[in-house]
């Protein structure tokens, strides 16, 4: 029983980190219809920047916030290149973000080195129902809950949030209303960057990140995001949890090395299942 609980809690925590990465995907895609391949990169930059700042003596709290801001700026940069030029089709933007993610490898190696880094956040653990649970897990879950609530409120209640939704809902009408679809898109990228950075800040104490960790994070985040069709943050959270828990269970009870395969296979299955329900014409109109 305690083993089950351990796997469950760690699965939920990891799932929360996937959900945070996923929320960045959703934020950007919802507004710009672009799938941002560099979403994993934001997480890596977030984690590595925090570790670097902490190493230079900055206190906890300041280092994390600063790292997240940096990620927001990075997100803005990625967005500017990916969608800044008018008339760039979304698939071209995808390839551009892929290129930028690769370029980021180079920058990360130069700035942070090519070794994995980690740092400690919430230290220690507690016992719950016989299971050994790190405090960091609770921190991750709490932060995720707060973030997703804030996201939901942002989209449902604020004027800017509604304008962002309008941009993807009907870009033509948004333009007529005077909403700059480009500026909203850049805002979405900046927010997506910060969400990715937050994910990285929370993940790194759990598992070290290095410059090439972004692929696995991106794939998992994407898998979670497609639960909600890349449009709804709430479903992305659910997706993240499902993924995290399944991976954890498979890793614990079957074989640790099959974790990624499970996530990927699950993602493929979901994508194929969803596409069977959406005719191509609907997607093309999108």
């Amino acid at each position: 029983m305690s083993a089950f609980l351990t796997y469950l809690v760690s699965g939920v925590a990891i799932g929360c980190t996937f959900a945070l990465v996923a929320s960045g995907f959703v934020m950007i895609h919802r507004v710009t219809r672009v799938v941002n391949f560099a979403q994993g990169t934001f997480a890596v930059v977030g984690g590595m920047t925090t570790a670097s700042l902490l190493g230079r003596g900055l206190p906890h709290g300041v280092a994390e916030v600063l790292a997240i801001v940096v990620c927001g700026v990075v997100g803005l940069l990625v967005g500017a290149i990916a969608i800044g030029k008018p008339g760039t089709p979304p698939l071209a933007s995808l390839i551009i973000t892929l290129g930028l993610a690769i370029g980021a490898y180079g920058v990360e190696v130069v700035v942070f080195g090519d070794q994995p880094v980690s740092f400690a956040m919430a230290r220690g653990a507690t016992t719950l129902g016989g299971a050994h649970i790190q405090w960091q897990y609770f921190l991750v879950m709490g932060a995720t809950l707060v973030t997703f609530t804030a996201l939901a409120l942002f989209f449902e209640r604020t004027y800017v949030g509604k304008a962002l939704t309008a941009c993807s809902s009907n870009p033509y009408a948004a333009r007529l209303a005077g909403i700059s679809v480009l500026r909203m898109g850049l805002l979405a990228f900046a927010l997506g960057g910060m969400l990715g950075g937050l994910a990285g800040v929370l993940i790194t104490p759990l598992q070290p990140v290095s410059f090439d960790s972004d692929a696995v994070l991106a794939v998992n985040g994407f898998a979670a995001a497609i639960f909600g069709g890349l449009m709804r943050p709430g479903t992305a959270l659910l997706g993240g949890l499902v993924l995290g828990v399944s991976e954890s269970m498979v890793g614990g009870y079957v074989n640790a090395s099959y974790e990624t395969e499970v996530a990927l296979a699950l993602m493929l299955a979901i994508m194929v299942w969803r596409s069977a329900r959406t005719p191509v014409s609907v997607e093309e109109a999108a």
């Binding site: 509604k162 809902s169 948004a174």
Partner: peptide, 13 residues
């Protein structure tokens, strides 16, 4: 219009 948004939200935008 923006179909997912309410009438009031459409107006406000």
């Amino acid at each position: 219009l923006f179909p997912e948004l309410t009438v009031e939200d459409n107006l406000r935008l």
